[in-house]
């Protein structure tokens, strides 16, 4: 599944991140465990938490990040 389809408050492991310089600079990479904080309305970004950092990621970009739910 892609990250944007994820549920709030659920943890995910990122499997496949697109090769994007901005993602890379923010330290978003494969193997990272993230949780979804919230999604913004009308096509706004998704907000994920990585440890204690919060990062807003564009909807279009988040749709290209493949993730797996952590149970």
């Amino acid at each position: 599944m892609h990250l944007y389809a994820g549920k709030k408050h659920q943890k995910y492991i990122l499997n496949d991140c697109p090769n994007d310089q901005l993602l890379f600079a923010m330290g978003i990479r494969n193997g990272l465990t993230v949780s979804i904080v919230t999604k913004q309305p009308i096509g706004g970004p998704i907000i994920i938490r990585i440890k204690n950092r919060e990062i807003a990621i564009d909807k279009a970009l988040a749709c290209h990040i493949t993730a797996k739910a952590v149970t």
């Binding site: 994007d20 901005l22 923010m26 907000i47 950092r53 919060e54 990062i55 807003a56 990621i57």
Partner: peptide
């Protein structure tokens, strides 16, 4: 336009 990636 760029996608938004923003550290809060």
């Amino acid at each position: 336009s760029r996608p938004l990636i923003l550290e809060i």
